[in-house]
Computed example of a mutant assay.
Amino acid sequence: MRLFIALDVASPLRDAIGAMRGSLAGVRWADPATYHVTLRFLGDVTGRDRLEDIDIALSALRAPAVLLQPEAPGIFEQDGRQTLWIGIARSPALLHLHRKVDTAMRRAAGLAIERRRFVPHVTIGTIAAPSPDLLAPWLARWSALPLPAVAVPRLTLFRSHRGPDQPVYESLAEYDLDG
């Protein structure tokens, strides 16, 4: 099963980001119920023992709760497609939690150290055929709009299923952070 560890985005931030849906033509908008900030992608995990090791490691993790402070929207480009996202500030608490999760997963699941830079974000949609004429003004408009910060008191182990149009995320377990 495909797994990842993330911070679930709650309201009012979820609602504010969800209000952007439909504001740019040609975007396949993500369902607001799926908004999250990925801390570590685990990939395909097989075997009950390995899943138990991950659960034990996440249960033992101690870190303070995190305040997600949204920033300007942006895009990742890959294979001719663009992923539209809302940036999340790289706060000391968020970076600390990311390092703790990464270390715990390397020890518990034998994962390699993550080599790419951690860019905290919430994916809000994908664009198959982007129009620069529309995208630049959209980014400028939404960059100027303040979005509410939201406290996240727990992290979640998610399972990703292939859905008919978009992936479906199932929460397998939640782990409280220190308040």
Rank of each mutant, 00 (worst) to 15 (best):
L172M: 13
E77L: 10
R2G: 11
R159E: 03
D31G: 08
S23D: 04
T123F: 11
P73S: 04
R40L: 07
A104T: 03
V150R: 06
P32G: 08
R48I: 05
I54Q: 05
D79R: 15
R62S: 14
P137G: 12
P148E: 00
P137L: 05
P73H: 06
E114H: 08
G125N: 06
E71H: 13
A149H: 10
S160F: 12
P130W: 13
V101S: 02
T126N: 13
P130E: 04
L147C: 14
G125M: 01
S59M: 04
W138T: 07
Y169G: 07
R14P: 01
H36Y: 10
V122P: 05
M20Y: 08
T46V: 06
I17W: 15
P137W: 06
L111Q: 09
I124A: 01
A65S: 15
V66A: 05
D15S: 13
P64E: 01
R28D: 09
W85Q: 00
R115A: 15
Y175P: 13
D133M: 09
V168M: 07
S131N: 15
T83P: 03
R90S: 15
P148D: 03
E174N: 14
D49F: 08
R90V: 03
R99M: 11
A25D: 13
L145A: 14
D15A: 15
R50T: 12
L135M: 10
L97A: 07
P164G: 13
R90E: 14
L157V: 03
A25P: 14
Y35D: 00
D178V: 11
D55Y: 01
A65I: 01
D176R: 15
D176P: 15
R159L: 01
E170V: 11
R107M: 04
V9L: 02
I86Y: 09
S11R: 14
A129F: 12
H36A: 05
L157W: 10
L94P: 05
R28L: 07
H161S: 02
G47F: 10
A129P: 02
L155W: 07
V37I: 05
A104H: 09
V150E: 11
L7N: 02
L155S: 00
A10E: 15
D133H: 08
M1K: 08
R116L: 03
D53C: 15
A151G: 04
L42W: 08
V45E: 03
L95K: 14
D31Y: 11
R62P: 11
A128N: 12
D176F: 13
A109D: 01
Q69I: 10
D49V: 05
T103A: 14
F41N: 04
I113H: 15
L157M: 12
E52V: 09
F4E: 05
D49G: 15
T38G: 02
W142A: 06
L95E: 14
A140H: 06
L134W: 09
L172R: 14
P130I: 04
L177P: 06
P164Q: 13
R159Y: 01
P32R: 05
S91K: 02
R117P: 11
R106D: 03
D79P: 04
L157Q: 09
D15E: 15
W138N: 06
V150K: 10
T103D: 13
V45S: 07
T38Y: 13
L3W: 08
R115T: 15
R159G: 04
